[in-house]
Simulated assay, not measured.
Amino acid sequence: MKRFALIGSAGYIADRHMKAIKETGNDLVCATDRFDVMGRIDSYFPDAQFFLEIENLDKYMDDIRRQGNPIDYVSICTPNYMHPSHIRFALRNGANAICEKPLVIYPEDMHIIKDIEAETGKRVFTVLQLRYHPTILALKKEIDKAGDKMYDIDLSYITTRGNWYLKSWKGDVKKSGGVATNIGIHFFDMITWIFGGVKENIVHHYDAHKAAGFLQLEKARVRWFLSLDYSDLPPQATEKGMRTYRSITVDGKEIEFSGGFTDLHTVTYQNILNGNGFGIDDARESIELTDYVRNAVPLGLKGDYHPFLKKA
């Protein structure tokens, strides 16, 4: 049984991490969050210690380490901009880190934490759960088998958000990395994992609400569109009362993977605990891709842009 700490335990995604820790037969020893209503923890680990300040968590972890009961893993579910400091916190406390995506916002932070990995002998793992999705695994197997064939892909993801979004840390590009990072990082990781590295990266549009562009990958030409705006939803979504629309087509064929997400964090933890988790180098391509998108000068409606952009 491994011993876990969790930072950001009141956040939405933390529930999946607690469930994964429980389902893999391990123990959440301690947790911290600035938010003090933590009833959710009672469903999983009612005996876990809870702290409002990370400084007190730090002291507690140091105390139990000195007593011979160190924390093995620190799970990190905090806002994106806090990830580098919390990863350092884990490594410096003699624990491995399991960090939600994006691992970091800025590529330079990857180099620093990789150095700290080497200094401490501990590992940094990230959550790239789409790589464990059965449909995505089947697609990768098919693409690998086909060899050097080039594919045409349209990636569309619209997940509508209310007025709160831009007032929260998610609406601050310095804290979230912007819309392409915050809602797109897992899709960019998925397509580069399957279709290869980036050869050309063109941005057609970028603002606080939406982004669109074109990627030339080793095995694919990708038109992509990401949005937070309800008005960007296509009729097939609004007619069903849906507020989220997700679509990936490969050579005109729809890849359906809306379901099957429930247990992917548990699968992620199982692989990490078995020594097969995804680390810093696995996250590199998508982090560098989104960093470029965030800083590029958009071209507008020129070239091979996503068809949704014309309406937007």
Rank of each mutant, 00 (worst) to 15 (best):
G147A: 03
F257A: 06
D304C: 10
D207E: 01
A312M: 04
L130Q: 14
H17D: 03
I13Q: 11
Y151S: 01
L309S: 06
V104R: 03
I136M: 13
D58A: 09
I71L: 02
R223F: 11
S258L: 15
Q236S: 09
N276E: 01
I287A: 06
A95F: 05
G252D: 11
D229E: 15
L28G: 04
L273K: 01
A138N: 06
E200V: 12
T159F: 07
V74F: 00
I64G: 11
W169L: 13
I7N: 10
W224E: 13
E254W: 13
T78P: 01
G196F: 10
Y60I: 07
P235Y: 00
H133D: 03
L130R: 15
T126D: 02
V37R: 15
T268S: 06
F188Q: 10
K210A: 12
D144T: 02
L137W: 09
I116N: 14
A10Q: 03
K141T: 09
F225W: 07
F51C: 09
N163S: 13
I153K: 07
S227V: 04
G25P: 00
R161S: 08
A211W: 06
K149Q: 08
L217I: 08
L226F: 15
D229W: 14
I113K: 02
D148C: 05
V173M: 07
H209N: 13
G260R: 02
G94A: 06
F261L: 14
F187Q: 14
R34T: 15
N93E: 00
N163E: 14
L6R: 03
D42Y: 12
G213S: 11
I54G: 00
D47I: 01
E55R: 12
M38G: 03
Y292W: 14
A237E: 03
V104K: 04
F308Q: 15
I202F: 11
R294E: 11
E288V: 01
P79T: 10
N274M: 05
Q236N: 10
K145I: 06
D63T: 08
T126L: 01
C30M: 10
T120D: 04
A208G: 04
K149G: 05
L137N: 13
N69R: 07
F50S: 12
R284A: 04
H86Q: 11
A90Y: 01
